[in-house]
């Protein structure tokens, strides 16, 4: 069995860009990672670093005309999704891969009932009768913890709270037992108490359904709780990729270290969060040479602005993209050769 078949999802050198004044600027510039069956992979990184664009690329749901996947492959069960057309993707969306979004308030169509929108995914992919679909919908709503589903099924989205709507979204996404669930910051827009409930629900479902989850989040507390593996993104690139305990114990990229430093600690009195100075460079102002984090990096040295670091294995499965690790120098650089010869 090849690696592509063993991995459920394998993203390889993905580049996705937006046309700004006629020119293609990459919001995702060289992203590679894998998701194994039944694995929970968390994608973390600051706002604007390309997490949503990357996940929409997988589903081929990017806004048309203004955006483009310009390079790379996305293998899902061995098949390259980038090569598929809209009709072929429609067979995968909702059935093989489910997706939930950040904004439950606007994600549902305001003029259709909850039942209609839930049943739609069933009708799209199965030949269920109306009655069966209704029964299955009620069952699904119970599964995601919606009380009185017989009533809610005939209600409209505006009659439900944000947490309830996100539960409906989850019910829709898992209705056909997908192998992969992509959740793009599913709790960010919700109250803290509701956040915890939704997270708990996702964990339960993952246990029961045996599906893989790709969870995008800002919250490293959540990562520590649910992740098997973590992919850290910065400015459109993967800067670190490791098993969760390894990453927390032994971060190899100063960006990861700063992110870990910015987790608020409950037991410590802290005046302010230890946040990273500066902001992610905008698409138009991305440096072409050197490390994209160099300007904000507390550990930056001379080479960082001149040599472009490569994503390389620093310790078994643990990958990073930082020149502090000699392996990350480009293959033709003397430092790299030195690292290999050791």
């Amino acid at each position: 069995m090849s690696q592509q078949e063993k991995d459920l999802l394998q993203v390889k050198n993905l580049k996705t860009g937006f046309y700004i004044e006629g020119e293609l600027h990459h919001a995702v510039a060289d992203v590679s990672f894998e998701v194994k069956p039944k694995e929970v992979v968390c994608i973390v990184g600051e706002s604007g670093c390309g997490k949503s664009v990357m996940s929409l690329s997988i589903m081929q749901l990017l806004p048309e005309l203004i955006s483009k996947i310009s390079d790379g492959q996305i293998f899902f069960e061995g098949e390259d999704l980038v090569q598929k057309n809209d009709r072929e993707m429609n067979k995968i969306r909702g059935k093989e891969i489910g997706m939930i979004f950040q904004e439950p308030m606007t994600a549902l169509n305001p003029v259709f009932t909850i039942g209609y929108q839930l049943q739609e995914v069933l009708f799209n992919h199965t030949t269920m009768s109306k009655k069966e679909a209704r029964e299955r919908s009620i069952e699904l709503m119970k599964e995601v913890g919606i009380s009185r589903p017989e009533k809610i099924i005939d209600e409209y989205p505006h009659q439900l709270s944000g947490g309830m709507r996100q539960r409906v979204m989850i019910a829709m996404a898992i209705a056909l037992h997908p192998k992969l669930l992509i959740a793009d910051e599913p709790t960010t827009a919700l109250d803290v108490t509701v956040q915890a409930q939704i997270l708990e629900l996702l964990k339960d479902i993952q246990d029961k359904e045996d599906m893989a989850i790709m969870l995008i989040t800002h919250d490293l507390g959540v990562v520590a709780e649910v992740a098997d593996k973590v992919v850290v993104m910065y400015a459109g690139q993967v800067v670190e990729d490791a098993e969760v305990n390894e990453l927390f114990a032994n971060p190899k990229h100063p960006y990861t270290t700063s992110l870990l430093g910015s987790i608020p600690k409950m037991d410590q009195e802290q005046d302010r969060l230890n946040t990273i100075g500066g902001i992610v460079p905008s698409l138009e102002n991305m440096p072409h040479v050197g490390c994209r984090f160099a300007d904000r990096c507390p550990m930056a040295f001379e080479d960082c602005k001149k040599v472009t670091p490569q994503l390389a294995s620093v310790n078994g499965q643990h990958q990073a993209r930082c020149l502090l690790n000699k392996e990350c120098y480009p293959a033709d650089h003397p430092e790299h050769k030195e690292a290999i010869s050791q």
Partner: peptide, 11 residues
Amino acid sequence: DFVRTARAKGT
């Protein structure tokens, strides 16, 4: 957003 949701369902 609801259009994106519908597309994510394979509509």
